[in-house]
Design a binder for these strands. Structure first.
Lengths: 122, 122
DNA sequence: GGCTATTGACTACATCTGTAATCAATGCGA
DNA sequence: TCGCATTGATTACAGATGTAGTCAATAGCC
């Protein structure tokens, strides 16, 4: 239901998912690792995320404490599903096959996949 | 290396990946199943894809025959990898786990995943 | 109690995207 | 040969996005 999160907005979301609630300054600091943005830029992105009801803010003195309203897991599941639909017609195996072919699957990945499959068969 | 393909452009690409080469009219007809676009809109998208060097065109009389310059598999692998990186830190298993949890894995999917894993272990 | 620093709100502006109308060339039928 | 239909090129324009400057309120300091 909630609106689309743009690339730049997602960076802010990641910061908020790491820890919440945070002030605009906290978020800017955290985001600085990834992007060289001014504080104002971060605040604009926070505003837009507020307008989209993806985050909320509680007043704390004269500042605001921002917090995500959507869980990262939910967002990620939605996006993952959408991509799998768009690119693979809803089938996950071609993506796994692609990654396998590019040797992008670690032994850990393979073990985990096997565990998941085992769980499904029970 | 090639530039980003937007949502609308991707619809055109799908049409071109289905069959190539095609005239602008062919593409528009094929795309009509998905989107209710005017012929002009499709032509604009074709132009933009040309500008981005994602497709090429060969003159055929007074028309052009358009064809993709990137293979669907390559594009899809790139996008899939990018998403898995962005959302899951490069690990595929969380995505599979998500899909499994949402009962989005069919018996066929599971069988294919098992086959892929079996292939990897040999 | 006025000055300054902090902080959110508002405004700005270039680019990209979605969607299309209009223009211009050109080939074909009458 | 002349007008019409086809087709690509150019232009348009609103909304989203990336990036940030400026304004206004306010709270603490001297």
């Amino acid at each position: 239901m909630s609106e689309k999160i743009s690339e730049a907005e997602l960076v802010v979301m990641e910061a908020l998912w790491e820890a919440a609630p945070q002030t605009a300054n906290d978020v800017a600091d955290r985001v600085a690792t990834d992007r060289d943005w001014s504080l104002q830029t971060v605040k604009t992105l926070l505003s837009r995320l507020m307008a989209k009801d993806i985050i909320a803010a509680d007043q704390d003195g004269r500042r605001f404490l921002y917090r995500p309203m959507v869980a990262r897991d939910d967002y990620v599941a939605g996006e993952g599903g959408r991509l799998v639909n768009r690119l693979f017609g809803g089938r996950i195996s071609p993506l796994v096959a692609q990654l396998a072919q590019q040797d992008q699957l670690t032994a850990d990945d393979i073990a985990e996949l096997e565990a998941i499959l085992k769980g499904l068969k029970s």
